[in-house]
Simulated assay, not measured.
Amino acid sequence: MYGVKVYVTYKDSVLDPQGEAVKGAVHRMGYTEIEEIRIGKYFEIKVQKTERLIEEVIEEICDKLLANINMETYRYEITEEA
Results as ranks from 00 to 15, higher is better:
8 V>T: 10
8 V>E: 12
8 V>W: 02
9 T>W: 02
10 Y>H: 09
10 Y>G: 06
10 Y>T: 09
11 K>V: 11
11 K>L: 13
11 K>M: 10
11 K>R: 15
11 K>N: 10
11 K>W: 04
12 D>L: 00
14 V>M: 14
15 L>V: 05
15 L>Y: 08
15 L>C: 03
16 D>I: 08
16 D>A: 11
16 D>E: 05
18 Q>G: 08
19 G>T: 01
19 G>N: 00
19 G>I: 00
20 E>T: 05
21 A>H: 06
21 A>P: 03
21 A>L: 03
22 V>P: 10
22 V>N: 11
22 V>C: 07
23 K>H: 02
23 K>M: 03
23 K>C: 04
24 G>P: 03
24 G>K: 13
24 G>Y: 01
25 A>K: 05
25 A>I: 13
26 V>P: 11
26 V>M: 14
26 V>Y: 14
27 H>K: 14
27 H>P: 11
27 H>T: 14
27 H>W: 15
27 H>L: 14
28 R>K: 15
28 R>T: 08
29 M>D: 07
30 G>N: 13
30 G>Y: 14
30 G>F: 11
31 Y>P: 06
31 Y>E: 12
32 T>K: 15
32 T>E: 09
32 T>P: 02
34 I>C: 11
34 I>E: 01
35 E>N: 05
35 E>V: 12
36 E>Y: 00
37 I>G: 02
38 R>C: 01
39 I>V: 15
40 G>P: 05
40 G>E: 03
40 G>V: 01
40 G>I: 00
40 G>A: 03
40 G>R: 06
40 G>Q: 05
40 G>D: 02
41 K>E: 13
41 K>S: 12
42 Y>F: 15
42 Y>W: 05
42 Y>G: 12
43 F>P: 04
43 F>V: 10
43 F>R: 04
43 F>W: 15
43 F>A: 11
44 E>K: 15
44 E>C: 11
44 E>M: 14
45 I>N: 07
46 K>R: 11
47 V>G: 04
47 V>P: 03
47 V>Q: 08
47 V>K: 10
47 V>Y: 11
48 Q>S: 13
48 Q>K: 14
48 Q>I: 03
48 Q>V: 04
49 K>D: 13
49 K>L: 01
49 K>N: 06
50 T>C: 01
50 T>H: 04
51 E>S: 06
51 E>G: 06
51 E>D: 07
53 L>V: 12
54 I>F: 10
55 E>G: 12
55 E>Y: 06
55 E>W: 07
55 E>L: 09
55 E>T: 12
57 V>W: 05
57 V>E: 08
58 I>V: 15
58 I>K: 00
59 E>C: 04
60 E>Q: 12
61 I>H: 04
62 C>M: 10
62 C>N: 12
62 C>F: 03
63 D>H: 04
65 L>D: 11
65 L>F: 07
66 L>A: 14
66 L>D: 12
66 L>S: 13
67 A>G: 08
67 A>P: 08
68 N>T: 09
68 N>A: 07
68 N>S: 10
69 I>Q: 10
69 I>A: 05
70 N>G: 02
70 N>R: 04
70 N>V: 11
70 N>P: 01
71 M>Y: 06
71 M>S: 05
71 M>F: 05
72 E>R: 03
72 E>G: 07
72 E>F: 13
73 T>E: 11
73 T>P: 01
74 Y>E: 07
74 Y>N: 08
75 R>L: 07
